[in-house]
Design a protein around this nucleic acid. Structure first.
Length: 736
DNA sequence: GCACTGAGATTACCC
DNA sequence: ACGGGTAATCTCAGTGCG
């Protein structure tokens, strides 16, 4: 209990006194801190154990004399990093006392007798990495951990050693035991898998439990356990799920090991039968060997991918202070959260709690109606880091925001016209300081990258560092408008959006004033005719008048705009084709439609020949009608975004998902449903069938012509007034 | 009963 | 489980018509 009349002068004695009921308090001090814009005197209580910290914090929260207890909700390991300034994935120095050899699988153990001091050393030390892949299956169904044993575990280590543990000569239990033995003998720093967080480890954990095998792969003999952000943690090692890193590759639409590896240029030859055929394949010895080979190939590919992603992970981890094994699994919002916590701590802010807040929408960016047609010689001008720079320029931050009824001299704050929000001009707010640091850091990395005398590995590390800084910098605006953010104030995001609209509008207006034709604009990019002198003058004007930079980004020899926003295709000056927003780049259209659209776009852009494009389209359509069918080309992939029971609409992919279930395949939100439209049935959701249960002759070719190919071709040719009717009737004429 | 229409649900994209 | 803006498809209930 804290008695009435306790002051900052005697708080220390009161808390430390045995009568207070608080226990294991190591130190109490009174320090000046900030809570948003408020300067406060805060009592810092240091406890002797994490247990005491939790209990004392709980007690203090109930005390009426205490306004608020803060920073007690932060993970202790994170608190330690904040307090000491130590950084994950970096070296540090500290005083130690030897404890001696312990049960842990380490050479020696020490207790820290001082705080660590960050001691950055460039380069990554030699790390032992092991990757594993597994195979389990049901009797013509998805594997179920409660029922189906692990059949194969394959491992690949970065010292070149490989193993495959197979159930044919071992029991399920022995497969796990041998795997664990092999892993522990290698004593890896990093254990990588593909989908190991959601599938691999949970499955192994369940099988180990059922078979009585020990899964003590941790350095202190512990088993893996579920941790924050849905990742699986292995004490003393970095558990790395390569799948998490695949999120950084939007080009890969269906994220299987094979697809991700192929995109990264890693060859992985696994021609696996469908999941539901695995049990049949397993029963024959030669196909069983093939399954074993495939599992090993997957482990090899996982290892290569882990190595490829590691540098980025390390940079992101040390930048955000989030441990390496968590940072990949954490969403951008959480990464920014951690980064800001570190920044806030060094700036003397107390870290607010994460609380539930209502969702409030606000107006976002401007998108202009494009000038439909084919344009020659066009340049896309982009603001460099528009939102971050606006947040810096106008000091947009939760701690500089002036609430509506607060009276303040208008000279002292920025007024955001429109919503009418006000922000103090000084001192610099949390976001301003964080973003200024991030941008300065990124520029310094860019400068280093320009140096000619870099080794390949140094160059890669710097490039990944730049990428990590970019992710956090660009994430700040979205974070500011996210109700789950610790530093959420809607007005900050709303003001940034308002200023963004104002900025791009002024550029567009300026273009019109100087006779630069604006063809299209979206958020922070303006497409104009590439009149070099006028563009150069415009760049100077923007810099002088808006105090931000706009720079020529993509230059097009030719660019085609449809009537729709966010969809265009252009031929860049380097000869490559850039397709944005069109079905070609969408994962939820059949390959056949996307391929044909891509060819049509190519012909128009590179050859400038509308006739050829139209002729090609007609030929392609008749091919679809009469040619040979590769089933692969007809699959339509769509994600399941929620549990199947929650869908109320009989959408094709939802109905197909239900058919997946009846066929024995399990599904979870996030899974991709692949389906093919067949001739069977009348409603689309009846005609759609799981891709693995369809024979080529069942494909409804007419559906694909009229609902996939014709629309996407017409999207392009429609720009030149060639409508769907001409594509359909043209074919009919040639038929008669 | 049938074609048509518009709203709503859903997904994936752009920046 | 970071923001808003956008296109597009398909279902489904409602509407007018015969």
């Amino acid at each position: 209990m804290i008695p009435r009349g306790t002051s900052f002068d005697n708080i220390r004695e009161v808390l430390v006194s045995s009568k207070s009921g608080f226990r294991d308090i190591a130190d109490v001090s009174v320090e000046g801190r900030k809570i948003f814009s408020r300067e406060v005197k805060a009592v810092k209580v240091v406890c002797k154990s994490t247990k005491a910290l939790g209990e004392n914090a709980k007690r203090l929260t109930k005390e009426t004399e205490v306004e608020q207890v803060l920073e007690e909700d932060i993970r202790y390991s994170c608190l330690y990093l904040l307090e000491t300034g130590a950084v994950p994935c970096q070296w540090c120095q500290l005083q130690v006392r030897e404890i001696g050899v312990s049960e842990a699988s380490v050479t020696n153990t020490y207790a820290a007798t001082s705080s660590p001091t960050a001691t950055p050393v460039d380069g990554i030390p030699e790390l032992r990495i092991i990757a594993f892949s597994w195979m389990a299956f049901g009797e013509r169904s998805s594997p179920n951990a409660a029922r189906d044993p692990i059949s194969v575990i394959a491992v690949a280590r970065n010292d070149g050693q490989e193993r495959t543990f197979v159930r044919s000569d071992l029991s399920d239990r022995d497969v796990i035991v041998r795997f664990v033995e092999f892993l522990k003998k290698f004593d890896p720093h990093i254990v990588a898998g593909f989908e190991s967080n959601r599938v691999g480890w949970p499955y192994l954990m369940e099988r180990a439990k059922l078979s009585g095998a020990s899964l003590d792969v941790g350095r202190i003999g512990s088993s893996p356990h579920m941790s924050v952000y849905g990742h699986v943690s292995i004490t003393g090692r970095v558990s790395m799920d390569v799948f998490n890193y695949a999120d950084e590759l939007p080009e890969v639409k269906v994220k299987t090991i094979e697809n991700v590896a192929e995109f990264l240029g890693i060859t992985v030859s696994t021609i696996l039968p469908d999941e539901l055929e695995l049990s049949t394949a397993w029963s024959k010895s030669d196909s069983r060997h093939h399954l074993e080979d495939c599992t090993l190939n997957r482990a090899r590919a996982t290892l290569e991918m882990a190595k490829r992603f590691l540098e980025f992970g390390i940079e992101l981890s040390s930048l955000t202070c989030m441990p390496l094994d968590q940072v990949a699994a954490a969403a951008v919002g959480h990464r920014v959260d951690l980064y800001l916590m570190k920044e806030a701590h060094t700036q003397g802010h107390l870290i607010p709690h994460r609380i539930e807040r209502p969702y409030m929408r606000y107006q976002g960016a401007i998108v202009l109606e494009p000038q439909k047609g084919l344009h020659e010689n066009v340049v896309a001008l982009d603001f460099t880091s528009m939102y971050p720079n606006l947040m810096i320029l106008y000091n947009l931050s939760p701690d500089t925001f002036v609430p509506i009824h607060e009276e303040i001299d208008s000279d002292q704050c920025w007024l955001i016209e429109g919503p009418g929000h006000r922000f103090r001009k000084s001192p610099p707010g949390l976001y301003k300081r964080a973003l200024t640091n991030l941008i300065a850091f990124r520029n310094s990395v860019k400068d280093k990258l320009k140096s000619a005398s870099l080794s390949d590995s140094e160059r890669r590390i710097l490039a990944e560092r730049e990428r990590a800084v970019k992710v956090i910098t660009n994430g700040c605006y979205g974070y500011a408008g996210w109700p789950g953010a610790r530093w959420y104030v809607r007005e900050v995001a709303e003001s940034a959006a308002t200023l963004g609209r104002l900025s791009i509008s002024r550029v567009i207006q300026r273009c019109r004033d100087v006779d630069l034709t604006v063809i299209y604009a979206d958020t922070d990019a303006v497409f104009v005719n590439h009149d070099k002198d006028k563009v150069d003058a415009l760049l100077r004007w923007v810099s002088e008048n808006l105090h931000m930079d706009i720079r020529p980004d993509k230059m097009y020899q030719r660019v085609l705009f449809t009537e729709a926003k966010k969809k265009y295709a252009g031929l860049l000056v380097d000869g490559t084709i850039d397709i944005v927003g069109m079905e070609v780049v969408r994962g939820d259209w059949s390959e056949i439609a996307r391929d044909i659209q891509e060819r049509v776009i190519e012909m128009i852009l590179t050859e400038g020949s509308l006739d050829k494009a139209k002729e090609y389209a007609l030929t392609a359509i008749s091919q679809v009608r009469r040619g040979k069918i590769e089933l692969q080309d007809f699959i339509i992939w769509k994600s399941l975004t929620k549990p199947i029971e929650e869908y109320n609409v009989r959408a094709p992919h939802v109905e197909v998902a239900r058919k997946y279930l009846t066929l024995g395949r399990e599904l979870v939100p996030g899974d991709k449903i692949g389906y093919v439209v067949t001739t069977k049935g009348t409603k689309l959701h009846e005609k759609a069938q799981p891709y693995f249960a369809v024979a080529p002759d069942q494909v409804d070719r007419e559906y694909y012509i009229s609902n996939q190919v014709v629309p996407v071709v017409a999207r392009v040719l429609g720009v030149f007034n060639i409508g769907e009717d001409q594509l359909v009737s043209g074919e009919q004429h040639s038929l008669t």
